[in-house]
Design a protein around this nucleic acid. Structure first.
Length: 898
RNA sequence: GGGCGCGUAGCUCAGCGGUAGAGCACUGCCUUCACACGGCAGGGGCCACAGGUUCAAUCCCUGUCGCGCCCA
């Protein structure tokens, strides 16, 4: 016997272990079944399961379990990402607590230290994914730094380099002064900062007393200015173009140029150009062939090496001694000193408050410093072309579709991707340098030496590039590298391209776009058919969850409190497309109650000796109750399947919630009770048969979202052995004889009971009072139907018996109108006539409004002329119904009055 | 500045040309033999605003206002 209350905590671990051990999560490359593949967005090895992971993986698990039950050879590929910067940060911090730095340790020892850390405490998240119930094919678990994936990374790098799609270049990059590495455009987030804007006066060369004013938000970079730009055709500066200005403090003469970048409407109309420390200025410098001195070092401190020779003493404007004193100062400290010095020299025109977007490193959180360095780049624009085309032609579809715009906007204007990182944790770039700087990009050191020998005619000393690759470089290969590429494996052959990628919009650029590029380039086709983009999980007020706000909901705590099934169901139910999820604990509790409801319904069936009966034929059902519930199940199957096919997880959840609770529990079980309590015989057997059939359907339909409770009940009710539900066949509709007739029958009884209940509740008749039901004007069908269901009606409507009323109504009846009939409950002792009159009056008002609305429509000639005939007909019927109802309500009120 | 999305019941959200829906919350009644994590019933809506298209608009179009996100 099932326990009275459903206790997820006591069974989840056991059920998951049994499922995993059974091998049911595993793909079967040798099977003939059509594959269905999903690759997990690999969580960071440093990570732990947060609510976003819970959502993301629940949706994937729902799809995988659904397709697996449909007989597909389902592969859900597990794995983790080495997460370059994030992991290096964690381990460096750990070293810090021991008072060590990574530089003291040295590269080799530090990397070994990370591997040790990974073996010990990395991958917590895989254990947590098991708690969520994720049916990943664990034996296939991969790691972006494992041997196979590293081989794929090297292969891709070498091939792209040979094709000219990876190259080295000295350009301005986003430089993180804390991690002291280049980062890509995507790893920079701009934050609105309140700051200041300084207007400086630069003396015009050869024209004493004349100045040109420039506005800047970064006065400390002025040491690296190599020009002043004014806008084309700005009359104020026309005569200055071609002349030079004296760069204050430094004393160097710099040209005044006209360039489209400068905006006459903004600031003073003239801007200083610091090519090595600003992206726009860099572009201007390239157009005008300006020099590009760097004045900040890797830690963003003032660095004078490249301008030391240019320092001049200029009376009232420049003093080498002052500039030299700045060397080694932090950029923001130097800023103050420089502003003070300019003020002293009366070269500061004004200072105003100013707010602007300042780039920050997404990991370090510090202000990014553009820096001119030699880095490796990937020609993303070339790789993007086939990826764009795949989306344009529908080979890959985003769900919801509007995300395609976001994808296109990024991809059509994509910039070279900086892929080198000055870190130690990651895939080391397979480039070796000869003594003369020659570059050998090869698969391994031996090959590099061979290539060098060929070039130099003898063995030379080669040094390997110190840098590693952007973490996202290896993630970009994930859909095929995890399947064995570059080797030709059966898995690669069978499971690529994958079917669906489920992810958040925040990594469309980082990851989805790059997988599209690499997938096309190396596999010749898109890595996935559908990209399902889900929203962000927020707190119940819509705020982002963050530790500092203290509004973080920990999925593991939610699972502890409500069970994994309830957490999963909640996330699905709230996953409306294109919307973020506002998660409130009350929702969790509501869906936990749903699990309990299912549990208790099963318990009821069990108590009535209802258990799996594979021999029972639903097609054989004779009675309307069995046919009605089977028909309802058919609808639920069709709707749930359609919802999942369309990635409508919310509708899928809603369909099952409604059918299970409002149809199966609220009505079917209640109608079944009189039968089950009655004599044994074919009728009871049929109701039991239908009940076991439908609960079997419900358990299977719910299994993708609620794997634990359904598994437990499935086994308990005897549908199969341990862990058999996971591979049970997804239900399909069964043939139901004359379903429309069954619907009319049961829906009619439901309406009758509901009407009586409503009337009783309205006039406050306590359930303890039972009464006769008098029916006037009912059709023979309705009377016959009521007679057939008298047991259920007695129970559910608190009616003792049903009588047809021919003559006048007795005094003191409560009345209600149901279709063509008037229902009367003789309750003379308990009713309040005034309340009764008010109730009938209220119904009459509603009917009158209806009549008015429809009359207006039907009186409109154009409506009659242009509306669809069926719409007109429908309105005529509704009008007749409403008018008839008014007539019966009037009659009812007349009876009360007498 | 450009783009995308959202304003529907107290809250969270479905719906999307032709009777305005769900869950939760709320109110009343009920410890009826699966379930009080329950049952029954009920109240509650100018579907943001203003125009337009249409026989008909919460739904389509345009604009306005408010909110959120992305990109510059």
């Amino acid at each position: 016997m099932l326990d009275k209350a459903f206790d997820p905590a006591s069974m989840e671990a056991r059920l998951y272990a049994a499922s995993e051990a059974s091998g049911a999560f595993g793909a079967e490359p040798a099977s003939d079944a059509q594959p269905f593949t999903v690759v997990i967005p690999p969580p960071n090895v440093t990570g732990s399961l947060h609510i976003g992971h819970a959502l993301n993986n629940t949706l994937q698990d729902v799809l995988i379990r659904y397709r697996r039950m449909q007989g597909r050879d389902a592969l859900w590929m597990p794995g983790m990402d080495h997460a370059g910067i994030a992991t290096q940060m964690v381990v460096e911090r750990l070293l810090g607590t021991e008072g060590k730095t990574r530089k003291e340790l040295g590269r080799e020892a530090f990397v070994k230290r990370i591997w040790d850390w990974k073996a010990e405490s990395g991958g917590t998240i895989t254990r947590q994914l098991r708690r969520l119930g994720a049916s990943l094919d664990w034996p296939r678990e991969r790691f972006t730094m494992d041997a196979g994936l590293s081989k794929a990374v090297i292969e891709v790098f070498v091939r792209l380099h040979k094709e000219g799609l990876i190259y080295r270049d000295t350009r301005l990059v986003n430089w993180d002064p804390v991690f002291q590495t280049a980062i890509s455009d995507l790893e920079v987030e701009s934050r609105e900062m309140k700051g200041q804007i300084w207007t400086l006066r630069y003396p015009v060369e050869g024209e004493p007393g004349r100045f040109i004013q420039v506005a800047t938000t970064r006065p400390e970079t002025m040491l690296g200015d190599t020009a002043i730009a004014v806008s084309l055709g700005d009359a104020r500066f026309a005569d200055l173009v071609g002349k030079r200005a004296i760069l204050p403090l430094v004393g160097r003469a710099i040209p005044i140029v006209a360039d489209e970048y400068s905006d006459a409407e903004k600031g003073t109309g003239a801007v200083k150009i610091t090519p090595a420390h600003d992206f726009n200025d860099y572009a201007v410098a390239r157009r005008h062939d300006l020099s590009m001195p760097t004045v900040l070092d890797a830690e963003a401190r003032i660095w004078l090496d490249e301008i030391a020779d240019e320092l001049r003493l200029v009376e009232g404007a420049a003093n080498p001694e002052f500039v030299r004193s700045l060397a080694g100062q932090d950029r923001f400290v130097a800023r103050k000193a420089i502003v003070a010095e300019l003020e002293r020299l009366e070269l500061l025109e004004k200072v105003e408050a100013h707010s602007n977007a300042v780039p920050h490193g997404d990991r370090s959180g510090v202000v990014i410093e553009p820096r001119l360095t030699l880095q490796w780049y990937c020609d993303a624009a070339t790789l993007a072309k086939p990826a764009i085309e795949a989306v344009e032609t529908g080979k890959t579809e985003f769900v919801p579709k509007q995300w395609e715009n976001t994808f296109f906007a990024w991809m059509r204007d994509i910039q070279p991707w900086c892929i080198s990182r000055q870190l130690w944790w990651g895939h080391r770039i397979p480039a070796w340098y000869g003594p003369d700087g020659s570059i050998f990009v090869e698969r391994d050191e031996a090959a590099a030496h061979a290539a060098a020998r060929e070039q130099f005619g003898s063995d030379v000393v080669l040094t390997r590039d110190e840098d590693v690759l952007d973490t996202w470089f290896s993630s970009a290969l994930w859909p095929f590298s995890t399947l064995g590429w570059p080797d030709k494996t059966p898995e690669l052959d069978k499971y690529y391209p994958t079917n669906v990628l489920v992810t958040g919009f925040d990594i469309i650029f980082f990851w989805v776009a790059r997988m599209m590029m690499m997938g096309h380039h190396f596999m010749g086709e898109a890595p996935f058919k559908h990209v399902v983009i889900h929203g962000l999980v927020r707190d119940e007020k819509g705020a982002k969850m963050s530790k500092s706000k203290g509004n973080v909901l920990d999925p593991l705590e939610l699972i502890d409190a409500n069970g994994a099934d309830a957490v999963r169901f909640t996330l699905c139910a709230l996953a409306s497309p294109g919307r973020d999820i506002k998660l409130a604990k009350a929702r969790l509790e509501g869906y936990r109650a749903f699990a309990t409801k299912l549990w208790n319904a099963s318990r009821f069936l069990e108590m009535n000796g209802i258990a799996a009966d594979p021999a029972w034929q639903p097609e054989s059902a004779q009675g309307p109750l069995a046919r009605w519930v089977l028909d309802g199940a058919n609808t639920a199957i069709a709707e749930a399947s359609a919802a999942l096919d369309a990635f409508r997880f919310d509708e899928y959840a809603a369909v099952l919630y409604r059918f299970t609770w409002n149809s199966f529990c609220d009505w079917f079980i209640e109608f079944a009770k009189p039968v089950l309590n009655g004599p044994d015989g074919p009728e009871k057997d049929e109701v039991k048969g239908a009940a076991q059939h439908v609960i079997g359907v419900i358990l299977r339909l719910l299994h993708p979202v609620m794997p634990f409770i359904t598994d437990e009940l499935w086994t308990h009710l005897g549908y199969g052995g341990e862990a058999s539900l996971i591979r049970a066949v997804w239900p399909t509709p069964v043939a139901v004889r004359d379903a429309a007739e069954a619907r009319a029958e049961l829906d009619g009884v439901v309406r009758l009971i509901s009407e009586v209940r409503a009337v009783r509740a309205e006039v406050n008749v306590p359930p303890s009072i039972t009464t006769k039901l008098l029916v006037q004007g009912a059709s023979p069908e309705m009377l016959a139907r009521a007679g057939r269901w008298i047991d259920a009606i007695r129970r559910l409507a608190r009616v003792t018996e049903i009588e047809t009323l021919e003559g006048a109504a007795p005094k003191g009846v409560v009345q209600a109108v149901l279709g063509e009939a008037t229902l009367m409950l003789p309750l003379a002792d308990v009713i309040d006539l005034a309340a009764e009159r008010a109730r009938l009056g209220k119904d009459r008002v509603k009917a009158e409004i209806e009549v008015k609305k429809i009359n207006a429509k039907l009186g409109n000639e154009e409506f009659i002329a242009k509306a669809k005939p069926e719409v007109i007909e429908e309105n005529r019927e509704r009008l007749a119904d409403a008018q008839a109802e008014i007539a019966r309500l009037d009659a009812a009120m007349a009876r009360i009055a007498s």
